[in-house]
Amino acid sequence: MSPIGIFDSGLGGLTVFRSIAEALPQYDYIYLGDNSRAPYGNRSFNTIHQYTWECVQWLFAQGCPLIILACNTASAKALRTIQQKDMRGIDAYKRVLGVIRPTAEVIGNYSLTGEIGVLGTNGTVQSESYLLEIEKFFPQLKVYQQACPLWVPLIESGEYEKPGADYFVKEYLDGIMAQSQNIDTLLLACTHYPLIQDKIEAYLPKTVKVVAQGDIVASSLVDYLRRHNELEQKLSRSQSKHFFTTDDTIEFDHHASRFFASSVKSAHVSVTQLSC
């Protein structure tokens, strides 16, 4: 089998996986969540790179010729090093892609005022990856950022459904909206955040559009495979989906069903033995 590999530091990448599987149901997939070391958002560049590369190597070992980093923090802090350094000497037909560039290519099309906000983890915001990538495609667009460090822990633990979480949702939204009255689009630059999209929208003016990444990344992948036939032909097609976690499977399965919108049955795996 030659499945598409999808990686996230935890559960958030399942929101992207769901969109990809809906757009491209014919392929086989392996999802890996590094839950035992999540969240990645507050970790150093070197640590995020090390963890991400270990997980990429594990997915390569499972036969994946194409891997999607369905994690903004990993895409921001590890993808470039993996593509430009770690992949040297590896099969030229293997690819590792992220979620930031495909999002940056279209996000400006959502705004009428020319001003947008980016909500992400500390790691994503501090990397300024969105500022750099968006500027390439929409140089006139004004981009504001807001780190939301407590959102991922609240979502991963399931606490986001409780009323107490609303305080932290509103706090970060007030922070981003205070930067400009002309912001009319907010990008959820973390794949966990769609689970609280309803809460987010409830604290925003009706004129502000909230954009999640799942469908954007899925659409970009459809186009990528259309343009890279040599890679697309390597992918196996039996519509299988396999889920793996580096942490407790019962806990993973319980929470993953909310992200993936269907029942999930995972297996435990250790990835550190493949570390370089």
Score class of each variant (00 low, 15 high):
Asp174Pro: 07
Gln140Tyr: 09
Ala165Thr: 11
Gln146Phe: 01
Gly164Thr: 11
Glu128Lys: 13
Phe138Ala: 05
Met177Trp: 05
Glu135His: 07
Glu135Tyr: 06
Phe168Gly: 04
Gly117Asn: 07
Gln145Lys: 13
Lys142Val: 11
Thr121Trp: 10
Pro139Gly: 07
Glu133Val: 00
Glu161Trp: 01
Ala147Lys: 06
Lys142Met: 13
Pro153Ile: 03
Ser129Gln: 14
Leu150Met: 12
Thr113Phe: 06
Lys142Ile: 15
Thr124Phe: 07
Gln146Trp: 01
Phe168Glu: 12
Leu154Tyr: 04
Pro163Leu: 09
Lys142His: 12
Cys148Ala: 14
Gly123Ser: 00
Glu115Val: 14
Tyr144Phe: 14
Leu141Ser: 02
Ile155Phe: 01
Gln126Thr: 14
Pro139Leu: 14
Leu141Gly: 01
Gln181Ile: 08
Pro139Gln: 05
Lys162Gln: 15
Gly120Asp: 08
Val143Trp: 03
Lys136Gly: 10
Glu161Ala: 15
Gln146Arg: 02
Gln145Trp: 00
Val169Lys: 02
Thr185Glu: 01
Val125Ala: 09
Leu187Met: 01
Asp184Phe: 01
Tyr172Asp: 11
Leu173Glu: 06
Cys148Arg: 00
Ala147Val: 13
Asn122Thr: 15
Glu133Gly: 01
Gln145Asp: 11
Glu171Trp: 07
Asp166Phe: 03
Leu119Pro: 06
Glu135Met: 04
Leu150Val: 10
Asn122Pro: 07
Val125Tyr: 05
Tyr144Ala: 02
Ser180Pro: 04
Leu150Asp: 08
Ile183His: 04
Tyr130Val: 05
Ser157Leu: 09
Glu133Ile: 05
Ala178Pro: 02
Leu154His: 12
Leu141Asn: 03
Thr185Trp: 09
Glu135Lys: 14
Phe168Lys: 04
Asp184Gln: 04
Glu135Ala: 12
Phe138Lys: 00
Asp174Met: 12
Leu188Pro: 02
Thr121Pro: 09
